[in-house]
Write a protein that binds this DNA or RNA. Structure first.
Length: 827
RNA sequence: GCGGGCGUGGCGGAACGGCAGACGCGCUGGACUUAGGAUCCAGUGGGGCAACUCGUGGAGGUUCAAAUCCUCUCGCCCGCACCA
C-alpha cells in the first residue's frame, strides 16, 4: 500500500473513462423527474480562478446528488464568449484575432473543468460567439423588434476621450474609464433599446413568486426597479405658451410649492432663458453638468447649485406665481426632468431654499404644534392636517394625496402616475466582438429587420484592429454595405453589436437543444426542462443578468414561446473566495491558482476544501493548512478503504433491525451520517456540515476497526464503508469512484442510488439527559430513550445527587424536554 | 443618507429557543520509527488543585431556558446613492 493515494493517476483515469462512456450525457426525457442544475457560465478570460472552482464545485455536488436521488439531471456548461477583453487582447497583440484568443481560452478552461471532474454533459456545450448560437441571439432581437419592444433613439452614452470609444456602463468605474482611467464624457448617439420598462410591474410583482431566491437579491431588484407612486402635475409658464410637468410623490403638498426646478439639460430651459440676461450663466451650468454627470454621482454630496431662469410658473391649484430655476440636483432621466420645490416638507428642497433665500410655506400642520417656517431646522415629513391649501384645509394629509390627485385629474391639471427608476435597456455597443444587430437601413424602406431566413448576420473575421476607436465593422465595406431585404435596393447595415448581456440572458434555453439548426430551441425540450431548478452563481449578477433573464423569459412567455414565466426557480448566490481577508487579485499578489492546487493536491482535495471551509453563500477564506487538512482526510479514507480490496464483496449487508453493542453503534453512526448528509445537502445546501458528518463517520470507522475482530460484524463494516464511499462521491468523485472499483464494484459509484437511512438503526435505547437547576447544568444521567416526561421527572427527582442539590429549596416548577433535558426551577 | 448582511476559542467554522464551541486547522503530550514535517492514540475556550465559576461585540428586555427572539448601541462588509 502506498502512503498517499495517487491522485495523479486516479483522476485522469476516471476523467477519461467517464468521457468515453458518456456517463454524464443526459437524454431529453426519461421516466424520471427532471432536474435542471445550472451554474452561471463563465467569460473565457484565460484560466479558471478560485471563484469558478467554487461555483462549479457547488453545482457539481447538487447535480451528482440529484442524479443519485433518481432525477434526470441536466447539467450543462458553455461560454459567455463575446466581449471586450477579447478585443483588447487583439489590439494589444496585433496578430491575435479575438476569435482565436477566445477559442484558445475556451480550450484551456474546458480542460480545467474536466480536470476538476465536474459532471457536465459536454455534448451540450455552447459558445455565444459561435454563429450557430448568435444566429438565435439575433432571432431573439427580431422577436423583440416585431413585438415593438426594440426601438432606436438618441441617447447619451459613455465616451472615453483617451480610448476614443464608447464604453458600456459596466466599464465605467468611479466616473473614469476602466482601462485608462480617463474621465468619461457623455455623448449623444443613436442607440437601440429594449423596452424593459414595459415589464417593470411584472418584474417587480413576480419577485413574490420566487421564494427560492435570497431576499437580498430580490430587494436589490426591487430597489433597482424603484417603483414609486405619485402624480404628474402640469404648471403653465407665466406669460408664455409653455408648460412644465413635474412628478411628485407628495401631491398633498402642492400648495406648498414656492419654486420650480428644471434639470439643466431640460429642453424647456433654452426657451425660458432665450434673450434673458441670465442665459449665459444657465448655459454654463448646463454644460458643466452635462460634462460632470458621471463623476458627480460618486461625490458624496455635490453642492447644490441653482440659477434663476427669469421665468415664472403658475401653480395650478392656487394660482401662485413662483420662480423657475435650473439646478444640478435635478436629473433629466428620472421622472419628467423637472420638480416642484416644497421646502417645508422635503429636506433637499429645504436646504436649497435656505441657501437661495426662497420662501418656505408650511402646508401640513402636525396636531398640537404650529410649524413656523422661520424657526424650522429641517423639513417636516410627519403626518398632519393640510393648511394653507384652499378647500383642502383640514384634510388629513394621507387622504390629501388621493384627494388632490383626484382634483387634479378632474380639472385636467394632472393625474396619478407610477414612476420607475428602471430605464430601458440600451443594447447597442460600438464594438466588434459581439453579435451584429440584424437590421439594415434602406434609403427607401427605412429601418428593415433582417428576415429570419437570412440569419445569422455573420460577423466578418477579416477585420483590422487599429486602435482608432471606430468599430472595425464600420470600416468593413463588405459588411456595412447591404441590399435591402424588402426592395433589393442600396442599403447599409447596422454596425453596432449587441450587449453581451443579451447573449447570456437566454443561454439556459439553448442548452435544451444546443445543436438545433432550425429553432432557437425545441419547444418540447424547453417544456420538459425549464424552468431551471437550481441556479448558482455570484451575487454580482444580482441585478443585470438576472433581471434581463427574467425580462426575456416574460417576453417569450407572452409570445407563447415558452411555458414558464420565471427562468430560475431557486437561486444560490455563492460568496467570494478571499485570501488574507480580501478578494484575490493580481495587484494584491494574493492569487491562489487552481491549477497549482490541482497539481499539488488533486481536484478532489480542492473541491473538498472549498466545500468544507464555509457555507456556500458566505465568503470563504483560503487556507493552505485547511487544504492540507482535506488532503489528509482523503488519505485517511484511502488508507481505511483501499486495503480492504474486494474482501467484503460477498458479505451480505445487515438486514433491517436493531443490533446491539459495538455493531449496533457502528450501524447507528452509519445511518445518522446518511440522515445528516442528506439533510445538509438536500435541504440546506450546507456542504460544510455534510463534509464534517462524513469525517465523523470515518473517525467512527477507525474506532470500529480497533474492536477485536471476533466482536465485529463484517456486514456492518461493509455497510459503513460502502455508505462512506457513496456519500463521498458527490464531493470527491474520483477517489470515490476508484475506491468503489477497488472494493469490487463493477458499476460507477455515480450511478448508485442515494442511500436512505433506516430510522430503526438510529434509535438509541438510552440517552444522556441534562439536569438543570434554574437553567444551569448540574447533572447528567442516562435514561431510557422513550421515557415519558412524567416518568423522567420522577426518575430525576429520585436521584440522590439531585436531592442534595435541591435540599432546603422549594421546587417551583419542573420542565421536562423529552430526550434532552429536565430543568428544575427552585426558590 | 437608504437598504441588506455579519460579529462565537489562536484560526475556518458548528449549534429545530434546550449541554456553546461539532468537524477541520493549529498547538500539547504519547505510541510507532534509522528518521518524522508521515501515521495512529489522547488532550486542547478563560480562571481555579478542586467543587465550581466566567464566557457568543456592548447594554437592556422576553422566557423555566437566549449565540438564537425583541429594543437600543458599537464595529466591520456589501449593494444603491441628489429618484423628487
Amino acid at each position: 500500500m502506498k502512503e498517499r493515494y495517487d491522485f495523479k493517476t486516479i483522476e485522469p483515469k476516471w476523467q477519461t473513462r467517464w468521457a468515453d462512456q458518456k456517463i454524464y450525457a443526459v437524454p431529453d426525457a426519461a421516466d424520471k423527474p427532471k432536474y435542471y442544475c445550472l451554474e452561471m457560465f463563465p467569460y473565457p478570460s484565460g484560466k479558471l480562478h478560485m471563484g469558478h472552482v467554487r461555483n462549479y464545485s457547488i453545482g457539481d455536488v447538487v447535480a451528482r446528488y440529484k442524479t443519485m436521488q433518481g432525477f434526470n439531471v441536466l447539467h450543462p456548461m458553455g461560454w459567455d464568449a463575446f466581449g471586450l477583453p477579447a478585443e483588447n487582447a487583439a489590439i494589444k497583440h496585433g496578430a491575435m484575432h479575438p476569435a482565436q484568443w477566445t477559442y484558445e481560452n475556451i480550450a484551456t478552461m474546458r480542460e480545467q473543468l474536466k480536470q476538476l471532474g465536474i459532471s457536465y454533459d459536454w455534448d451540450r456545450e455552447v459558445a455565444t460567439c459561435h454563429p450557430g448560437y448568435y444566429k438565435w441571439t439575433q432571432w431573439l432581437f427580431l422577436q423583440l423588434y416585431h413585438q415593438g419592444l426594440a426601438y432606436k433613439k438618441k441617447a447619451a452614452v459613455n465616451w472615453c476621450p483617451s480610448c476614443a470609444t464608447v464604453l458600456a456602463n459596466e466599464q465605467v468605474k468611479d466616473g473614469g474609464c476602466e482601462r485608462c482611467k480617463a474621465v468619461v464624457e457623455r455623448r449623444e448617439l443613436e442607440q437601440w433599446f429594449f423596452k424593459i420598462t414595459d415589464y417593470a410591474d411584472r418584474l417587480l410583482d413576480d419577485l413574490e413568486k420566487l421564494p427560492g431566491w435570497p431576499d437580498k437579491v430580490k430587494i436589490m431588484q426591487d430597489n433597482w426597479i424603484g417603483r414609486s407612486e405619485g402624480a404628474e402635475i402640469t404648471f403653465t409658464i407665466d406669460g408664455m405658451d409653455e408648460s412644465m410637468t413635474v412628478f411628485t410623490t407628495r401631491p398633498d403638498t402642492v400648495f406648498g410649492v414656492t419654486y420650480m426646478v428644471l434639470a439643466p439639460e431640460h429642453p424647456l430651459v433654452e426657451k425660458l432663458i432665450e434673450g434673458k440676461p441670465q442665459a449665459e450663466d444657465v448655459r454654463k451650468l448646463a454644460a458643466s453638468v452635462r460634462h460632470q454627470s458621471e463623476l458627480a454621482r460618486t461625490a458624496t454630496e455635490t453642492e447644490k447649485i441653482g440659477l434663476f431662469t427669469g421665468a415664472y410658473c403658475i401653480n395650478p391649484v392656487n394660482g401662485a406665481k413662483v420662480p423657475v430655476l435650473v439646478a444640478n440636483y435635478v436629473l433629466m432621466d428620472y421622472g419628467t426632468g423637472a420638480v416642484m420645490g416644497v421646502p417645508a416638507h422635503d429636506q433637499r428642497d429645504f436646504e436649497f431654499a435656505r441657501k437661495y433665500n426662497l420662501p418656505i410655506r408650511v402646508v401640513i400642520q402636525p396636531e398640537g404644534v404650529a410649524l413656523n417656517p422661520d424657526e424650522m431646522n429641517e423639513a417636516y415629513y410627519g403626518g398632519g392636517l393640510m393648511v394653507n391649501s384652499g378647500h383642502f384645509d383640514g384634510t388629513p394629509n394621507e387622504d390629501g394625496i388621493t384627494a388632490v390627485t383626484r382634483y387634479l385629474d378632474e380639472k385636467g391639471l394632472g393625474h396619478g402616475l407610477i414612476n420607475y427608476r428602471l430605464r430601458d435597456w440600451l443594447i447597442s455597443r460600438q464594438r466588434y466582438w459581439g453579435a451584429p444587430i440584424p437590421i439594415v437601413y434602406c434609403e427607401k424602406c427605412g429601418t428593415v429587420p433582417v428576415p429570419v431566413q437570412d440569419l445569422p448576420v455573420m460577423l466578418p473575421m477579416d477585420v483590422a484592429f487599429t486602435p482608432t476607436g471606430r468599430s472595425p465593422l464600420e470600416e468593413h465595406a463588405a459588411f456595412a454595405n447591404a441590399t435591402c431585404p424588402t426592395c433589393g435596393g442600396q442599403a447599409w447595415r447596422e454596425t453596432d453589436t449587441m450587449d453581451t448581456f443579451m447573449c447570456s440572458s437566454w443561454y439556459y434555453y439553448r442548452y435544451t437543444s444546443p445543436r438545433d439548426e432550425d429553432n432557437a430551441w425545441d419547444p418540447a425540450s424547453v417544456r420538459y426542462w425549464l424552468p431551471v431548478d437550481q441556479y448558482i452563481g455570484g451575487v454580482e449578477h444580482a441585478i443585470l443578468h438576472l433581471l434581463y433573464s427574467r425580462f426575456f423569459t416574460k417576453v417569450l412567455f407572452d409570445a407563447g414561446l415558452v411555458d414558464n414565466e420565471e427562468p430560475f426557480t431557486n437561486l444560490l448566490t455563492q460568496g467570494m473566495v478571499l485570501k488574507d481577508g480580501t478578494k484575490m487579485s493580481k495587484s494584491k499578489g494574493n492569487v491562489v491558482s487552481p491549477e497549482d492546487i490541482i497539481a499539488t493536491y488533486g481536484a478532489d482535495t480542492a473541491r473538498l476544501f472549498i466545500l468544507f471551509a464555509a457555507p456556500p453563500e458566505r465568503d470563504l477564506e483560503w487556507s493552505v493548512q485547511g487544504v492540507e487538512g482535506c488532503y489528509r482526510f482523503l488519505n485517511r479514507v484511502w488508507r481505511l478503504v483501499e486495503p480492504l480490496g474486494d474482501s467484503l464483496a460477498g458479505v451480505p449487508l445487515p438486514g433491517p433491525g436493531k443490533m446491539s453493542g459495538v455493531n449496533g453503534e457502528m450501524r447507528r453512526v452509519t445511518h445518522v451520517t446518511i440522515k445528516r448528509v442528506t439533510e445538509d445537502v438536500g435541504n440546506r445546501f450546507n456542504f460544510n456540515t455534510a463534509v464534517s458528518a462524513i469525517m465523523e463517520l470515518v473517525n467512527a470507522l477507525y474506532q470500529y476497526r480497533e474492536v477485536p475482530e471476533m466482536d465485529r460484524d463484517r456486514g456492518v463494516m461493509k455497510e459503513a464503508v460502502e455508505t462512506l464511499v457513496v456519500l463521498l462521491a458527490p464531493f470527491g468523485p474520483h477517489i470515490a469512484e476508484e475506491l468503489w472499483e477497488v472494493t469490487g464494484h463493477a458499476e460507477s459509484v455515480h450511478s448508485m442510488p442515494w442511500p436512505a437511512y433506516e430510522p430503526e438503526a438510529i434509535q438509541e435505547d438510552e440517552v444522556t439527559i441534562v439536569v438543570q437547576i434554574n437553567g444551569k447544568v448540574r447533572e447528567r444521567m442516562l435514561v431510557p430513550a422513550n421515557i415519558k416526561p412524567d416518568e423522567m421527572k420522577e426518575l430525576v427527582m429520585q436521584q440522590e445527587r439531585v436531592q442534595e442539590l435541591i435540599a432546603g429549596k422549594q421546587v417551583v416548577k419542573v420542565i421536562p424536554v423529552p430526550g434532552k433535558l429536565l430543568n428544575i426551577v427552585v426558590k
